[in-house]
C-alpha cells in the first residue's frame, strides 16, 4: 500500500505539472528534433532576426515601463534591454505557473503562509532554471513557448553583462539533459526543490521536511521504475541541487549588477520581490 500511495502522488504531481506548465519536455524535444513538421520555430541568430522575431515574443508592457523615457529605448543598444524586459514578463508569468504547481503539492497550502512565501521566494528561480533545461540543447534554446529558437552564439554575442546571463544555464542544462528525465520525473523533482527545509527564515521546518521526504520516496521509486538501467540516477539528480544553488546565486548577483549599471532597466515588481535580500 505504501508504494501505491507513492505512485498516486507521482501521478498527481505529473497531472498538476501538465496542467500548469504549457511547454512540456516532450513537446520541446519534438520541436528541437524537428518532429513538428511545418511548425518549426523561428530562429533568432543575429540582430536582424531578433528584430524580425520580436513580434513573436511575448512583450507585455511592464507596469512601470510607460513612465520611462522612450528616447532611450531606441537604437541597437536598446535591443538587449527590450529583449531582457520581455524575458522578465515571461519569467513573472512562469513564477505564477510555479506557484500554482506548488499549491497543488499535497500539504503545501496547509503550511504556515510565511513559510509558503519563503519556499517560493527561494525555490522559484531554481525551478525556473531546471525547467529551462528541456528547452535547451548545446546550440541554443527555445523561448516564447517554443515559437522561437535562439542560438547560444547569438546570446553570447550580446553586450556585457547580457552575454553572461545564459551561458551558465547552457552549461548546466547540457549536463542535466544527460540524465534524460521525462516530464513525470521532472514533476517530482520540482516538488522536491520547492519543499527544501533549509531555506533561510523558515519558521516551521518539520512539516516541510516531512512533505519533502514523502516526495523524495516517490521520486526514488519513480526513477527505479522509469529508468531501471540508469544506475544511481536518484543520487545524481540530488547532486544537481548543489550546482543549482550556485547558478541561482550567480544569476541574482548578475541581476543586481544590471540594476546598478543599466539606468533604463526596470525590474518587474514580482521578480524584485523575489530577489530582494535573497542571497
Amino acid at each position: 500500500p505504501e508504494a501505491a500511495d507513492l505512485r498516486a502522488l507521482s501521478r498527481h504531481l505529473y497531472e498538476a505539472y501538465l496542467k500548469y506548465f504549457p511547454l512540456t519536455k516532450a513537446k520541446a524535444r519534438a520541436i528541437l528534433s524537428g518532429k513538428t513538421g511545418d511548425n518549426a520555430p523561428f530562429v533568432i541568430h543575429d540582430m536582424k532576426s531578433l528584430m524580425e522575431g520580436e513580434q513573436f515574443i511575448n512583450c507585455k508592457q511592464l507596469p512601470n515601463q510607460e513612465h520611462q523615457p522612450q528616447t532611450s529605448h531606441s537604437g541597437m543598444d536598446a535591443v538587449e534591454l527590450r529583449f531582457f524586459q520581455s524575458c522578465q514578463s515571461r519569467s513573472a508569468e512562469a513564477v505564477r505557473e510555479v506557484t500554482e504547481f506548488a499549491k497543488s503539492i499535497p500539504g503545501f497550502i496547509d503550511l504556515d503562509l510565511n513559510d509558503q512565501v519563503t519556499l517560493l521566494k527561494y525555490g522559484v528561480i531554481e525551478v525556473l532554471i531546471i525547467m529551462m533545461a528541456p528547452l535547451m540543447n548545446k546550440d541554443g534554446t527555445l523561448i516564447s513557448y517554443g515559437q522561437i529558437f535562439m542560438t547560444r552564439e547569438f546570446l553570447k554575442s550580446l553586450r556585457k553583462p547580457f552575454c553572461q546571463m545564459m551561458e551558465p544555464k547552457f552549461e548546466f542544462s547540457v549536463k542535466f539533459n544527460v540524465l534524460e528525465l521525462d516530464d513525470s520525473d521532472m514533476a517530482l523533482f520540482l516538488a522536491v526543490i520547492i519543499l527544501s527545509g533549509d531555506r533561510p527564515g523558515l519558521m516551521n521546518v518539520k512539516p516541510i521536511e516531512q512533505l519533502q521526504e514523502t516526495v523524495l520516496h516517490s521520486l526514488e521509486l519513480q526513477l527505479k521504475l522509469n529508468h531501471p538501467d540508469s544506475l544511481q540516477l536518484f543520487a545524481k539528480l540530488l547532486q544537481k541541487m548543489t550546482d543549482l544553488r550556485q547558478i541561482v546565486t550567480d544569476h541574482v548577483h548578475l541581476i543586481q549588477l544590471l540594476k546598478k549599471t543599466e539606468i533604463d532597466m526596470c525590474l518587474h515588481p514580482l521578480l524584485q520581490e523575489i530577489m530582494k535580500d535573497l542571497y
Binding site: K60, S89, A92, E93, V95, R96, T99, K103, I109, L113, N114, Q116, V117, T118, L120, K121, G201, H268, P269, L270, E273, I274, K276
Partner: peptide, 21 residues
C-alpha cells in the same frame, strides 16, 4: 514577510483567477 512579498502572497492566496502580472 507577507508585507515584503505582497505579489507572491497574493499569488498564493488567489485560488482561481491569476493576478494581473
Amino acid at each position: 514577510l507577507k508585507e515584503k512579498h505582497k505579489i507572491l502572497h497574493q499569488l498564493l492566496q488567489n485560488s482561481t483567477s491569476p493576478v494581473d502580472l
